[in-house]
């Protein structure tokens, strides 16, 4: 469904992506792991067109992602941002139903609100949260609202950027379980960016390890622990010893 071929991206002399080759089949949950600053977020932003690659091709369903109707293309996606990226000036329900209140998917206001409340309920939030502003919510609740917004329009493809960053272990577990449940019941194709190994084990069908601008290893999550890739092993063990340089 999503295919990246030799995708490269540099910022000045910083070569972030040096030739990414990755395939995410329809209905699969792909988790991309790697250290901080290795370009994981740039990878998914390239697919969405938020970052323009210097070279390579990105295809979704065999079609070049950079060509064609942009609104129709983006309407297929949902995205949970690392910090939630909720709109401060809008109440929670308008954040969740943002896509449903404008553009091609526009619904009547009451219907959009009902859908928003239903999606909030799906991520474990009560209807009384709907009229609050994002700043009035805790970090975990903001993540849930972001998740509700990502699934509000029932997208075919969902991206999760660091879904558990900044959350305590219990809330991380709750978010991981929610993502797994929602992805399974929606049948969506997903890409998750994380360096949280508990997220990987809960969410992933397949894992790709990004290091030094290329995919070092990719395979089913069940083979991750037994793989003989030294980069992957060091990352999974969380060891300072290995081919990945650590600054101490």
């Amino acid at each position: 469904m999503i295919r990246l071929t030799d995708v490269k991206k540099s910022f000045g002399s910083n070569h972030v992506l040096r030739g990414i080759n990755l395939h995410v089949p329809k209905g699969e949950s792909m988790v991309v792991i790697g250290g901080s600053g290795t370009g994981k977020s740039i990878l998914i932003k390239s697919v969405l067109g938020l970052v323009t690659p210097d070279a390579g091709t990105i295809e979704v369903d065999g079609k070049d992602a950079t060509k064609g109707d942009r609104d129709a293309f983006l309407a297929r996606f949902g995205m949970l941002f690392q910090g939630g990226a909720l709109f401060d000036s809008l109440p929670v329900w308008q954040n969740v139903s943002f896509r449903l209140m404008r553009g091609a998917l526009k619904r009547p206001k009451e219907e959009a609100r009902e859908i928003a409340i239903e999606k909030l309920r799906r991520v474990g939030l009560k209807p009384d949260v709907a009229d609050r502003l994002p700043a009035e919510l805790s970090g975990g609740m903001q993540k849930r609202v972001g998740l509700a917004r990502a699934i509000a329009a029932d997208p075919e493809i969902i991206f999760f950027d660091e879904p558990t960053t900044g959350l305590d272990p219990i809330m991380s577990g709750v978010i991981n379980d929610l993502i797994r449940e929602i992805v399974t019941e929606m049948g969506a194709t997903t890409m998750t960016i994380t360096h949280d190994m508990s997220s990987v084990r809960t969410i992933a069908d397949k894992v790709a390890m990004l290091h030094d601008g290329v995919i070092q290893w990719t395979g089913p999550v069940g083979e991750m622990d037994s793989a003989d890739d030294p980069y992957l092993n060091q990352f999974v063990r969380g060891s300072a010893e290995g081919p990945i340089e650590s600054v101490r």
Partner: peptide
């Protein structure tokens, strides 16, 4: 600028706005 720093501008784009 705060919207940019907190990825709200990117979020707008992904929401076809």
């Amino acid at each position: 600028a705060t919207m940019k720093v907190t990825e709200q501008l990117d979020a707008l784009v992904t929401l076809s706005t």
